[in-house]
Design a protein around this nucleic acid. Structure first.
Lengths: 187, 187
DNA sequence: GCATTGATGTGATATAGGTCACAAATTTTC
DNA sequence: GAAAATTTGTGACCTATATCACATCAATGC
C-alpha cells in the first residue's frame, strides 16, 4: 500500500528510500467502512487523506437539503474539505465512504514539518494543487458551457473507471443534474 | 507600484528589502491598453501576471461561439491561463483588458528559479494556489446549488468593488446566466 | 434467504432561464 | 460634440431540465 503513495509522489519528485521513510513517518493509516464519515459539516477537519483503497465522496448539503457532490476520490487521489483543513475552520462539506476504504492521512502541522524537512515535498504539494486548480477551472467552464449530455459524456471520458463503481444517482449529483434527467440521457 | 506586489507577498511571508529586490528582479513590467489581449486561444502562455493597475478578464469561447468568463482580475490579483502556463500548452482561454492595465509578469522558468533562490516564495505560491482552490470549489458549489438571483447576490457580496467597474453583461457571463435574465433580476 | 433499502426507468407536468427582437440610454471614439 | 458602439431594459415565446409519482429491479444486511 505504501507503494501507491510513493509512486504518487515520485511521479513528480524522485525520492530515496530514506526520504520516503521520512515522508511516511508523517502520515498515519486509516481504515474506514462503507457509509462511514471521515469529515462532517460543522466539525473540524484535521486531515488530508490520500486514498490507497476504496472510494469516497465529498459533498455539500444546501439550505434546501439537497446534496451536491464536489468530488469523488478513489485510489491515488487526495481528499479533504480544503476550506476547513487549510484555514482551520469547521467543515462545510461532508466526506463519506462509498466503499470500504484505506487512506494515509496527515495533519496540517505534519505537512508543514515535512515540507520544512524535505523541501521537494513543498514542490510536490504545489504541483498537485496546481493540477487541482486546472481541473476545477475546467469543471467550471464545463458547468457553464455544456449541457447535461455533454457533461455526462465528458465525465465518462475523464473517469471511465468510476462509471462502473458509482451509481448513476451520484454521478448526476456530481454533474449538477437530476437523476431523472441523467437516466433519460444514459439510455 | 512595486509596493502593491510587496504587500501582496508580505501578507503571507515577510521579506527583507534585499529579498524583495530579488523577487522583483524576476518580474517584468507590462502596460496594456483597454481591449488589448494578453493571452489568446491557441497561442503560448508565457507569463502569469500580477495586476497592479486596471482590470482584466479571462474567458473561454465555446464551440457555439458563446463566451464564458472564468475570472476577473483587478489590482492585487493574479491572472493567466493556468493550463497553458503550467503545462506549457497553448491557451484555451483568452485574456483581455477591460481597462488600461499594468502588470508585473513572470515566466515559469523565472518562477522556478525564484523559488529555488528564495524558498519562502514557494510557500507563498502554494498558499495562493490553495486559496485559489478553495475559491474555485466554492464557485462550483455555487453554480450547482444556487439559482441566478442567489449567485448574483453572492457576487455582490464577494466583489462589491467590481460591481461598479464591470458592465452587467459581463457579470452575467461570469455567473453563467444570460444578460436578459440578470437584467430582470437586478430589477 | 427473506426483507429492507437503494437504484433505475419513465410518464406527466411545471418552471427557471434561454433566445429573439426591438427600443432607449449610456459610453466611447475620433 | 456628433457618430458609432456598447449597454441595458423589456416583451413574447421556447426549451432544457426539474419535480412529482409510481413501478420495477438489484443489492445488502441480518
Amino acid at each position: 500500500m505504501e507503494e501507491i503513495l510513493r509512486r504518487q509522489i515520485e511521479k513528480i519528485v524522485p525520492l530515496t528510500d530514506d526520504e520516503f521513510q521520512l515522508v511516511l513517518s508523517h502520515f498515519s493509516v486509516g481504515k474506514y467502512k462503507k457509509h462511514q464519515y471521515i469529515v462532517q459539516q460543522e466539525n473540524p477537519v484535521p486531515y488530508v487523506h490520500f486514498v490507497v483503497k476504496g472510494l469516497l465522496k465529498s459533498f455539500y448539503i444546501d439550505k434546501s437539503g439537497k446534496s451536491h457532490i464536489l468530488q469523488f476520490a478513489m485510489e491515488d487521489w487526495w481528499i479533504t474539505d480544503n476550506q476547513g483543513f487549510y484555514n482551520n475552520q469547521n467543515a462545510t462539506l461532508n466526506i463519506d465512504c462509498l466503499e470500504d476504504a484505506q487512506t494515509y492521512y496527515i495533519t496540517l502541522d505534519n505537512r508543514e514539518k515535512l515540507c520544512a524537512e524535505l523541501q521537494k515535498m513543498e514542490f510536490f504539494f504545489l504541483q498537485k494543487m496546481t493540477a487541482g486548480n486546472i481541473a476545477l477551472q475546467n469543471r467550471i467552464l464545463s458547468l457553464m458551457s455544456k449541457n447535461s449530455e455533454e457533461r455526462y459524456t465528458q465525465f465518462i471520458q475523464l473517469y471511465p473507471d468510476l462509471i462502473h463503481r458509482i451509481p448513476k444517482t451520484l454521478i448526476a449529483s456530481y454533474l449538477g443534474i437530476s437523476r431523472e434527467t441523467l437516466s433519460r440521457l444514459s439510455h
